[in-house]
Design a binder for these strands. Structure first.
Lengths: 230, 230
DNA sequence: AATTTTCCGTAACCTATGTTACAATATTCG
DNA sequence: CGAATATTGTAACATAGGTTACGGAAAATT
């Protein structure tokens, strides 16, 4: 690893929840004991069920966390953008396995830290320990919310929830979708035509107007009522 | 709290993953700083989304962890039998919320430990800390496996997986279902008639014979192939 | 600007599961 | 044991979403 690369990694790591507010020298030690892995776009990095005795950090690039079943149906659990620590809330289990397939969306770089080493660092630094505990709790809540969303709502409710979140985060009635409809259909675990139909229905019902990835919201009340959230 | 009750609780707690291999005196301290809550059958103990700044332990009885949507559709995430620590992998999050509704199946008793006190105990005892880390990882894997099962398999695959697990755990081709078909339909998040149809189909196809809750397995290969596990 | 790739709308048809309802058993409880 | 309750099988019908396929539009790449 070159000097310059290390410095870059240091910067990235310190932006990750888990490594926040740690001494630079400590992070440097962690990095120099880790391994770097490079991947092109659309490569499979890890598979669901594979043993997970490491902490993986996405240093550069983008990657997906996916459920893929025997028939090839895909449910996109997470779209991760660097820098981000990967679904590694499992390492303390008796039988730690990757919970999802990890696939790169773009050319990406990962830092790999062995579980045993990571454990040592954690026992050395209470800050790191607290960060990790918080990370695990957040990961747990993230996955259960995703679970609820996918399994308890129908497609119209999912779309309404999605749009309501966009309205709130962009604070406007004219909003720009943050992903393609194709990706959104993967996030919802449905086919693209099915999702397309729902957008058309909502447009026919006068709830939204669709201009490609731009949406004009016409009936916010409908969206909020339907998405079953305040 | 009476002397006798405390002793009972002590015994129960020490059987829980999280409190295993701790000094009795330490557990006694924890218990004497906790509160007891009693519930009848079919009472709601906590709701999904409610703030969770406590560790709840099911000391006596049985309870369900449930997803319930606005229309009343139910997905049973977990059937918990005492003694068992509840879905409390969330307490270190910035916004800790209950991930499921908790509803008693039978008359039950809970021990409630405030988050701050629990945190103090954890920092005092490395054993407790390690137990808790393991518990969180296991909880995470449990919920993602459940998620995969529910969202990526069709009903026939779910039933086949269920039966294969029974075969393996009971080590026989004549097996006894460990719950009613009604409860099983809740575990799968489908209606009872839908589940009933699948059992009938599998019987017609000569895969199993159904005698109420007892099943005779006729075609193990089919079951294994279909459940998409080795 | 031209070309290639990705994304999107649309339509006809299919299938798994939901809905409702009723009667027949099991199981639990008094 | 008898009554009450919970569980189960069954059937007719409804519907959300899947499947496949095609052409056009948009975006990225050269």
């Amino acid at each position: 690893m070159k000097m310059e690369e290390r410095k870059n990694i240091l910067e990235k790591l310190s932006k990750c929840e888990v490594f926040q507010n740690l001494e630079d020298s400590f992070i440097v030690e962690i990095v120099s004991n880790g391994q770097i892995e490079h991947y092109e776009a659309k490569e499979i990095v890890r598979r669901r069920g594979e043993k997970c005795e490491e902490v993986l950090v996405l240093i550069d690039g983008e990657a997906y966390g996916l459920f893929v079943n025997a028939e090839g149906r895909v449910l996109q659990i997470d779209h991760m953008i660097a820098p981000k620590i990967l679904a590694s809330a499992v390492i303390f289990s008796t039988d730690p396995k990757y919970p999802v397939d990890v696939e790169t969306a773009k050319r990406s770089t990962f830092l790999r830290i062995e579980k045993d080493k990571f454990l040592k660092y954690m026992l050395k630094s209470e800050k790191l320990l607290r960060n990790y505990l918080k990370y695990m709790s957040d990961a747990f809540l993230f996955i259960t919310d995703r679970f609820y969303e996918i399994s308890m709502k129908n497609l119209v409710q999912k779309v309404c929830t999605y749009i309501v979140n966009l309205i709130d985060s962009q604070n406007s009635d004219i909003i720009l979708m943050d992903m393609t409809k194709e990706e959104l259909s993967r996030e919802f675990g449905v086919t693209r035509p099915a999702l397309s139909r729902v957008f058309i229905e909502l447009e026919k019902a006068g709830v939204i107007e669709v201009y490609g990835r731009k949406l004009h919201v016409r009936n916010k009340k409908f969206l909020r009522d339907y998405s079953e959230f305040g």
